[in-house]
């Protein structure tokens, strides 16, 4: 059986140390969200990152942000080996500067087909396959991709990214003091989502983690991406040690992978 490597998105130093101690370190590449370049999770100062690792940038960058990224790139420590990012501007800079970093494009909610992914693979080393497609669509993409891809294997999925500070705005409007991380429950369906805000915007996540581990041993995978945000560390350890026997019961949520989405609610005219 293929044993693919794991790209583990971490949000605090404690989990890094624990995983290093309790998991087979050779199968883990840590992915660190960088302060001022990420929304929706606790972040690291670049100086805090000691391991050979990748950095994560999920912000859509404005003029100031893209200029700051150029400065970051110039001063990047040598232990940073790769970068996972959402903004196409970053891709352009990495191409223009002939950066040696491993470039992984995580264009959230895009990259839903093999043609698009193969187009981006002309410029990037790998691409994170969209989570918004069915298992069958993912399998077809893996089969037809010209380079190994990153599979979002486990974790809460970011389902909305706003530039607005929505929780702060709520506090200001109603003179309340809710935390910058909270749960929102839709008033009628009673479905919940998680919201996290910082100065750069608000990210909304699924309330449950997407368990996509069934595909983790597929062919043509560069990394399995494990997002540790909101997940108990002991369960991350189990995933990384391949000890997930009861996970289908504990984490049954399959996100959008089991049913095709619809988009036309009336018939086409003849």
């Amino acid at each position: 059986m293929i044993k693919n490597n794991n790209l583990v998105l971490v949000t605090n130093n404690e989990i890094v140390e624990t995983l290093k101690n309790k998991c087979q370190e050779s199968s883990i590449t840590f992915l660190f969200p960088v302060k001022d370049f990420c929304v929706g999770m606790p972040c690291f100062e670049i100086e805090e990152i000691k391991e050979e690792s990748y950095i994560y940038i999920n912000r859509i960058l404005d003029k100031e942000g893209i200029n700051n990224f150029k400065k970051l790139l110039k001063n990047l420590p040598s232990n940073i080996k790769g970068i996972v990012f959402d903004d196409i501007g970053i891709l352009n800079i990495l191409i223009e500067t002939k950066s040696k970093l491993t470039k992984i494009l995580f264009l959230s909610h895009s990259n839903c087909n093999y043609e698009t992914i193969n187009s981006f693979l002309e410029y990037a080393d790998s691409v994170v396959i969209s989570t918004d497609i069915t298992k069958e669509e993912t399998e077809e993409i893996l089969k037809k991709a010209i380079k190994p891809l990153v599979l979002y294997a486990f974790g809460h999925v970011a389902i909305m990214y706003s530039r607005r500070t929505l929780l702060t705005n709520y506090n200001n409007h109603f003179k309340t003091n809710i935390e910058k991380e909270t749960t929102l429950e839709e008033s009628i369906s009673k479905k919940s989502v998680k919201a996290i805000e910082n100065n750069y915007g608000t990210m909304i996540y699924t309330n449950e983690p997407f368990n996509n581990l069934a595909l983790q041993n597929s062919s043509n995978i560069f990394y399995n991406l494990i997002n540790t945000l909101f997940i108990p560390t002991e369960d991350i350890i189990k995933i990384l040690n391949n000890n997930t026997d009861n996970f289908e019961d504990k984490y049954p949520y399959k996100y959008l992978s089991e049913e095709e989405t619809i988009f036309r609610i009336k018939e086409e005219r003849p």
Partner: peptide, 22 residues
């Protein structure tokens, strides 16, 4: 509310695909 193209609330809540016109 979201950056355009960065939202699938509709997909998650109603299975209607926001990024394919639904």
């Amino acid at each position: 509310t979201s950056f355009s193209g960065k939202c699938v609330l509709s997909n998650v809540f109603t299975n209607r695909d926001a990024n394919r016109g639904g």
